[in-house]
Amino acid sequence: MSDLNQTLSLFARAIVSGEAVSTEIIAAYPNYSCDTAIEVYRNNYRGNLHDALACAYPVIVQLVGDDFFRFLAKKYIEYNQSSSTNMHDYGAVMANFLADFEPVRQLPYLPDMARLEWACHVAYYADDRVPLSLESLAQIPAARYADLVLQTAGQVIRSSFPVAAIWQAHQSAMSEDFHLDLSDGPGIFLVSRRDCFVEVSELSVSDADWLQRIQSGQSLGAATMETIERYPDFDLQAALLNLLACAALTSFSLETTT
């Protein structure tokens, strides 16, 4: 290990893992101790990651309050080191963390809300993609429809709770007199970005089944057949129009038939 790498590694361990730093490495200062200096870096590290989490999970911040979120973020940071130099990547496993986080047991919908918010965060920062248009699909000969392999944007979220309604209620444009019954029941939601706007829309169980088959790489023919087998009422044309309107389909290729 090079000298530089060794020094940086010791410094990183002091910040991230709380290890002591050798004073042979670090010089002394007129107005404060070396421990103070390291503590400033530890605070910066935690503060920056806290801010990244608060930016990715604004609804959860509102649901649990700033103080509790600070506690929650502190615990999350303790167990989840940063692994990307882009701070917008931090916080991806919040849903799993919350599912095991004892202090939020009474808020059983929180992990699903985290899943929904992370999908929104990812959609917000995603690269621009030109959504698929009806016109370009129309150019495919009907005989080849079954071989279409569609690329998608957007993520399907399944929840036992009405998390999309809770999410909507916490967007700033919404009115404040909002009442919600958690027993409103389960929902399936699509998070997508149309132009610049991240949208959360409800999906029917059959449309969601079909979209997830498409996302797993099945051809249009195979996905449609299997969805119809499970949901005989599935309407392919309506599903396509709905998903095109949400900009959830981005491009296609034709599976070569062998």
Partner: peptide, 18 residues
């Protein structure tokens, strides 16, 4: 970023020839 750690901050280092 060093040795498997990422610290999302602006960190100083020793000013050496290396």
């Amino acid at each position: 970023s060093a040795d498997g750690f990422v610290v999302n901050d602006l960190l100083p280092f020793p000013y050496t020839m290396e």
